[in-house]
Amino acid sequence: MKNTVIAAVLAAALALPYQAKARTVTIVARMNRFGGWSGAYVALYLVGPNNQYVKTVWMAGRHHWIYHELVAWDRANHGNWRGVDGVTGASVGSGQTLTIHTDIADSLINAGYSLVVDSKAYARPSREDVRIPLSTQDNGRVVRTHGYINEFYYRM
């Protein structure tokens, strides 16, 4: 009994700093009916208070030579397509919904950081549809656009 309490306290003590440092964010992007030949490439990335690129949260689409055609993302990221290792998935079809769960450090929330969505369909230009601050105030706020993204929100 005593041991169990100690173990629980120890576990809590070990876990607490992590809990305090990061939280899981669910990001949902529902696509418009953009037509197109195949799915759209969607880049989800974080930018800092001065619009400087921080990291890519998710890249939907597998062919790296298409990444450069996501113009806003490519320029922010200085053409570094290898920076998306481990966070890529399939492209998103017309009318489909992309849902992502990711861990985001608490230090980035309410600190002037923003989530940006840059998308592109085959043989169509890329378009930055969403740029939303990462803040408790914008938590769950639905953004609607007439671009590739129909509606977008995140919950944390």
């Binding site: 418009n32 953009f34 043989a123 169509r124 230009p125 378009r127 007439h146 671009g147 590739y148």
Partner: peptide, 24 residues
């Protein structure tokens, strides 16, 4: 207008994007 594209057949298309959405 955001992009001008010339297909190999010589057809030229312009993609545009505004608050009402995208079109070609």
């Amino acid at each position: 207008v955001s992009q001008l594209t010339r297909a190999p057949s010589g057809t030229i298309t312009a993609d545009y994007s505004d608050d009402n959405g995208m079109g070609t």
